[in-house]
Deep mutational scan, measured.
Amino acid sequence: KPRVVLAPEEKEALKRAYQQKPYPSPKTIEDLATQLNLKTSTVINWFHNYRSRIRR
């Protein structure tokens, strides 16, 4: 699969959402995906990867 490249404003929106709730509910994930015009799997993976990046 080709890698999804996020626009800077999409990254900022995801980071703001992460600061509010690092483990978002499925509803929140769905809303974010719709709002940013991304797949839910992309949003889920971003949160998973961002949490692991923060832990390093």
Results as ranks from 00 to 15, higher is better:
residue 34 T to L: 09
residue 38 L to R: 14
residue 11 K to T: 11
residue 11 K to D: 01
residue 37 N to H: 11
residue 51 R to E: 00
residue 1 K to Q: 07
residue 48 H to V: 09
residue 26 P to S: 11
residue 22 P to G: 04
residue 50 Y to N: 01
residue 50 Y to E: 14
residue 25 S to F: 04
residue 31 D to L: 12
residue 33 A to G: 06
residue 19 Q to I: 04
residue 13 A to E: 12
residue 38 L to E: 04
residue 50 Y to D: 00
residue 5 V to H: 03
residue 36 L to C: 01
residue 3 R to P: 05
residue 27 K to M: 07
residue 1 K to T: 03
residue 34 T to H: 15
residue 5 V to Y: 14
residue 54 I to T: 03
residue 42 T to Y: 06
residue 31 D to F: 11
residue 21 K to P: 00
residue 29 I to M: 13
residue 24 P to I: 00
residue 8 P to K: 13
residue 3 R to D: 04
residue 37 N to S: 11
residue 2 P to A: 10
residue 17 A to R: 02
residue 33 A to C: 03
residue 39 K to D: 13
residue 42 T to M: 14
residue 15 K to A: 03
residue 9 E to W: 01
residue 41 S to G: 07
residue 7 A to P: 09
residue 33 A to S: 08
residue 52 S to K: 14
residue 50 Y to S: 02
residue 27 K to D: 05
residue 1 K to L: 00
residue 19 Q to F: 12
residue 44 I to D: 14
residue 10 E to L: 11
residue 5 V to R: 04
residue 31 D to R: 12
residue 16 R to K: 14
residue 42 T to E: 09
residue 42 T to H: 02
residue 35 Q to D: 01
residue 50 Y to A: 12
residue 18 Y to R: 09
residue 38 L to A: 10
residue 53 R to G: 06
residue 28 T to I: 02
residue 52 S to Q: 08
residue 2 P to F: 15
residue 4 V to I: 10
residue 7 A to I: 06
residue 49 N to T: 07
residue 6 L to K: 08
residue 6 L to S: 03
residue 4 V to S: 11
residue 21 K to M: 14
residue 21 K to S: 15
residue 49 N to Y: 14
residue 36 L to N: 02
residue 10 E to S: 02
residue 40 T to M: 15
residue 23 Y to G: 04
residue 5 V to A: 12
residue 37 N to C: 07
residue 7 A to E: 08
residue 28 T to G: 10
residue 47 F to D: 02
residue 19 Q to E: 14
residue 25 S to Q: 05
residue 9 E to C: 00
residue 2 P to R: 11
residue 11 K to Y: 04
residue 9 E to L: 02
residue 41 S to T: 11
residue 51 R to N: 04
residue 53 R to Y: 09
residue 42 T to D: 10
residue 10 E to R: 01
residue 3 R to A: 04
residue 21 K to W: 11
residue 36 L to E: 01
residue 55 R to G: 07
residue 16 R to N: 09
residue 37 N to G: 07
residue 38 L to K: 11
residue 8 P to E: 08
residue 22 P to H: 02
residue 22 P to K: 08
residue 32 L to Q: 02
residue 35 Q to E: 04
residue 36 L to P: 05
residue 26 P to L: 10
residue 19 Q to M: 15
residue 27 K to H: 02
residue 7 A to C: 14
residue 3 R to G: 12
residue 27 K to Q: 09
residue 30 E to G: 12
residue 47 F to E: 00
residue 52 S to R: 07
residue 24 P to Y: 02
residue 3 R to V: 10
residue 44 I to Q: 03
residue 1 K to S: 04
residue 26 P to R: 12
residue 56 R to S: 08
residue 52 S to M: 13
residue 31 D to K: 13
residue 4 V to F: 08
residue 53 R to F: 04
residue 42 T to L: 09
residue 40 T to H: 04
residue 44 I to T: 07
residue 26 P to W: 06
residue 41 S to W: 04
residue 13 A to Q: 10
residue 34 T to G: 09
residue 24 P to H: 00
residue 23 Y to S: 11
residue 45 N to F: 00
residue 21 K to Q: 15
residue 13 A to V: 14
residue 49 N to W: 08
residue 28 T to K: 11
residue 23 Y to W: 04
residue 9 E to F: 02
residue 35 Q to L: 09
residue 2 P to G: 13
residue 20 Q to D: 14
residue 24 P to K: 09
residue 31 D to T: 07
residue 17 A to N: 02
residue 22 P to R: 06
residue 35 Q to I: 15
residue 56 R to W: 01
residue 41 S to I: 03
residue 39 K to Y: 10
residue 49 N to C: 02
residue 39 K to V: 08
residue 34 T to V: 07
residue 11 K to F: 07
residue 55 R to V: 09
residue 20 Q to S: 10
residue 14 L to W: 00
residue 32 L to E: 00
residue 24 P to C: 01
residue 6 L to N: 06
residue 55 R to E: 13
residue 50 Y to M: 14
residue 53 R to S: 12
residue 5 V to D: 11
residue 21 K to V: 07
residue 51 R to S: 07
residue 36 L to H: 02
residue 42 T to I: 01
residue 33 A to F: 08
residue 48 H to G: 08
residue 18 Y to W: 10
residue 52 S to C: 08
residue 17 A to I: 05
residue 44 I to S: 13
residue 2 P to S: 15
residue 6 L to A: 06
residue 28 T to W: 15
residue 28 T to L: 10
residue 43 V to I: 15
residue 13 A to Y: 03
residue 15 K to L: 10
residue 5 V to M: 15
residue 38 L to F: 03
residue 19 Q to S: 11
residue 45 N to A: 08
residue 23 Y to Q: 13
residue 1 K to I: 14
residue 48 H to N: 15
residue 45 N to Y: 00
residue 46 W to S: 00
residue 9 E to P: 05
residue 22 P to Q: 11
residue 28 T to V: 12
residue 12 E to D: 12
residue 3 R to Q: 10
residue 19 Q to L: 09
residue 22 P to L: 02
residue 17 A to V: 08
residue 10 E to D: 08
residue 41 S to A: 11
residue 21 K to R: 09
residue 54 I to K: 05
residue 39 K to F: 09
residue 48 H to P: 01
residue 30 E to F: 09
